[in-house]
């Protein structure tokens, strides 16, 4: 009996060792590729900003020691992806192509994870980092098709087109925005450090949200976000990038959120918030929640989390989060839907 057990254990050990070897041979080049691609993403960003990437910045971005980063760079230089210039590194033409490709993959994945898989904004970056290296180009293009050729990622960064030089970004940190009535639109939220991002998300800032900087008090910024005053530490606000709000988005006039419309009241839809994106936005539009349409608020559930709205002669139930993203202007006559 015992020898059977012994034999089985020997076989098992041999099999396990073989398996480990296969994993190891697969993992080593994978790791190198992962590191290279991560470095390429950082290089892409500096390329876009038209500056050189220093070794320290690279090491910091990867979370590596400068020595390991240097090793990586040397390897990349050998394969012809980067060349050193002045005090830093620059992408070669081949490097530019690859960097564009991997950045494109990363941002498309983030888009997918946010819109279709419903991942929270805070963990997109991390998750995309994990899977982007396993995708083939065909899969990436399939993803692009599937998502309907999105232009920007969930953080607000443009998704690069292959063979195009990235355009410099017209945006500035929120900390540089003037106080007063100039409307700023959030275009990008930095995802690192994660704690700062959570704080930004917690006060309701998303790409597309329009706000005003009310005042600056020491290290605190006082913001007017849709009529509500919020404060944000300047150190955190540094990770929020804004630009001058587009005319189409500046319709803050007398609009209110559909969710705040009282029962039985009727209103006209003015617009859907920019933060309502992807499939969710398409669904709402397809159901007839288009600008100009008449909506009447009706009954809600036990805790007021979900409410039914009469739109285009049909009752449609929405959760409060969605009704918050529909901006309306209350109008005169209730109840009777005049066709």
């Amino acid at each position: 009996m015992n020898w059977i057990i012994l034999l089985i254990s020997i076989v098992l050990v041999v099999v396990a060792m073989g398996w480990l070897k296969v994993q190891w041979t697969r993992w080593r080049p994978m790791r190198l590729r992962t590191a290279t691609e991560d470095a390429l993403k950082l290089l892409y960003v500096s390329w876009q900003a038209d500056r050189l990437l220093t070794l320290d910045a690279l090491a910091g971005g990867l979370g590596w020691s400068p020595r390991r980063a240097l090793e990586l760079l040397e390897q990349m230089e050998q394969t012809g992806l980067v060349r050193s210039k002045d005090q830093g590194m620059e992408l070669t033409e081949q490097g530019q192509q690859l960097a564009t490709q991997i950045t494109r993959t990363h941002r498309l994945l983030e888009r997918y994870l946010a819109d279709e898989a419903g991942w929270p904004l805070g963990s997109l970056h991390h998750m995309a980092n994990r899977i982007e290296h396993q995708l083939t180009d065909t899969q990436v293009e399939a993803l692009n098709e599937h998502l309907g050729h999105p232009q920007v990622d969930p953080h607000g960064d443009p998704i690069p087109q292959l063979g195009h030089t990235p355009e410099p970004l017209l945006r500035q940190p929120l900390t540089d925005w003037p106080e007063g009535d100039t409307l700023a639109q959030v275009v990008h939220i930095e995802d690192e450090p994660a704690a700062a991002m959570r704080q930004v998300l917690a006060i309701g800032l998303r790409p597309g949200v329009v706000l005003k900087v009310q005042s600056r008090q020491g290290h605190l910024l006082e913001l007017n976000v849709g009529g509500v005053i919020r404060t944000l530490p300047a150190a955190v606000a540094l990770g929020v990038h804004v630009k001058l709000a587009e005319q189409a988005s500046v319709q803050t006039g007398e609009t209110m959120k559909l969710a705040t419309l009282s029962r039985g009241k009727t209103s006209h839809i003015v617009y859907l918030a920019d933060s309502c994106r992807g499939l969710a936005r398409r669904r709402l539009l397809d159901l007839g929640f288009t600008p100009g349409a008449k909506v009447q608020a009706t009954f809600s559930d036990a805790v007021g989390a979900t409410r039914a709205y009469r739109i285009r002669d049909t009752l449609i139930a929405l959760r409060r989060e969605q009704a918050d993203q529909i901006l309306v202007r209350p109008c005169c006559s209730p109840v009777v839907e005049s066709n």
Binding site: Y112, E116, I131, T138, A142, L143, E145, H146
Partner: peptide, 14 residues
């Protein structure tokens, strides 16, 4: 896991 999520939707290659 995320792969499965993606695939269970409408994949391009199928």
């Amino acid at each position: 896991m995320v792969w499965k999520l993606f695939n269970s939707g409408h994949c391009a290659e199928c």
